[in-house]
Design a protein around this nucleic acid. Sequence first.
RNA 1: GCGCCCAUAGCUCAGCUGGAUAGAGCGUCGGACUACGAAUCCGAAGGUCGCAAGUUCGAGUCUUGCUGGGCGCACCA
Length: 650
Amino acid sequence: MQALKDEIASAIGRLLTERYGQAPERIVVEYPPQTGMGDLASPVAFEMAKRLRKAPRAIAAELAAGLPAIPGVARVEAGGAGYLNVFLDRAAAVRALAREVSTPPAAPSGDKVIVEHTNINPNKAAHIGHLRNAVLGDTLARCLRFFGRRVEVQNYIDDTGVQVADIVIGFRDLLKQGAAEAAAFTGRFDHFCWDLYARVTEMYAARPETRALRQEVLKALEERHGPIAALADVITHRIVNCHLDTMGRIGVRYDLLPWEHDILAFRFWDHAFALLKEKRAIEHVGEGARSGCWVMALEGERFADLKEGEKIIVRSNGTVTYVGKDIAYQLWKFGLLRSDFRYAPFRDGSDGQRVWATTSGPGEAAHPQFGTAARVYNVIDVRQGYLQAIVAEGLRALGHRDQADRSVHFSYEMVALTPASAERLGIPLTDEDRRRPTIEMSGRRGLGVKADDLLDALEAGALAEVEARNADLPAGERGALARAIAVGALRYFMIKYTRNKVLAFDFDEALSFEGESGPYVQYAIVRAAGIFEKMAAAGGPDQEAAARAALEEAFDLPEGEAAEEHWSLVTQVARCRETVEQAVEALELSQIAKYAFALAQRFNSFYHKYPVMKEPDPRWQRARIVVTWLFLAQMRRLVDLIGIPVPSRM
RNA sequence: GCGCCCAUAGCUCAGCUGGAUAGAGCGUCGGACUACGAAUCCGAAGGUCGCAAGUUCGAGUCUUGCUGGGCGCACCA
């Protein structure tokens, strides 16, 4: 559809130039609000009216009469106060759409794109905020792959930070346990750590002197030796496996897990530090409060919130800040570090896909090539916007302006709890809290909704619905349906909101399977598929037959409301690719969700009004089979981009 | 103090590069199932798009100011 829009726009442009010697720089071609106004429309005559001192309606009429034939366009008319309305050749459009939908996505080629997402501290269970991150990142990766890009998904594991230090202290000082005990633990390890982490926070509050334990543990984590490091190793590996399990439940996959301790082990920072010094991007502070630090000077409005006008990259004790490590990591992602990790398989997923990890061990020689991307998306919440800007500025200071521009912070707002949801979790609220729009979650205090718990609740809810409708199915199959529906509900919920809006988590809304939800979209697909199942069982056409019919469809229906309703479903189906392109361009994946829902809505309405199997007139029946198949085939591709599975029945 | 984000129906939210009568879902009220499966469909009520100027043939959308709310501005990550 986009190609046709461009063609129409340039045809209008040529005609305007030819006739009046001028044309607007950009000619808008859009979708009219009503079906009677054509399939595409341009308000270009309004803009030309003032330039030419001529009535817009007259200009539109001249354009309509003067436009040459455009393949795919049946006719062009002037409409309204001066719109140019374009009517498509319906038979040609249906056949073109059938070809598009039958064509498998392009094989990956060209420059690599890295999508970094999830990045959960490996010290506790994932919560619903992490789900928003992972679903956004995973959906972006799926969309990029759909467009034939080479995509590498990375999940950065920060195993040398304060949060890991705290959980290590929990095991060692509160539980008096070491690596062996942590390894022997049975049960949901990440959920256990969720509570233990909160107990550590309580300990710090009750006995502030215990905070000093952190320094010793952090040092051991960086140096990676001794019982502390062994304990940390067990904890972080177990937690990362838990996170992969949780994300695996909703179909999220990774190619590579870069471990922060490997960034240290391979001295990425030393290389980056040398480069930064060489380019004079950072300077040593000789005196004052920051004496002994290395700082990066930052100017301009975007850093106006920086108090000192400079950011500390290396502390006076010689250790590197997070920003410094991230600059090194970003350089590696773009292949600018002239040094690489070693790699080893981390584990193989149930889908047969292998997850790799960096390693300081011997590694495996035969590994895929990692890093060296032309473009990088960092899926990180909006609160880190300023740190991300500093990292990009670091790349610029080193002369890598292009890479800085292609290092995209895919930012999104927080997931918080509505006061009602918080109270349901047993979080004590003050009257002031209750008046607030949202209550922030706190992993540190153990306040929040764990990802697994939400998924469990969704599966239980879905199972109850499945059992009410499909008592005949074996239990295993019912469970599989419930899981698919739960994933659909969750993934839809996580991308339906605009990314820069705080997601106020409400249990009833998240657990809803009706209205604007993933299951609604799934249900429409199941219904469409059901038609072909029933028809084929009765000796009628199956999906393959429908596909063949669509490729040669004449789409010649008697004029009237019914024909318009069939046609408008076709045009809606045709906007898929264009919608996904725009969504990726704007990093506004909610547009894909909204489109999928609107399309499902239109189909459900169509389904109710126009029976396929019972239709006696073969011309109408044929058209309905084709339209239903176009919807089904397109919708399958679309929900796959969002990671929503298609249940066999509902 | 400085910077970023948000404000649209009772509630939760859409509204694409400015374009024809501002749309969904939930909730409320009223209808449609011995079925291509009602997790659905049809209908009704419900909005001075936070306020005020400005740009424009045209503003929910762009500019400026204001009001209210959220977040950020560490030798934490």
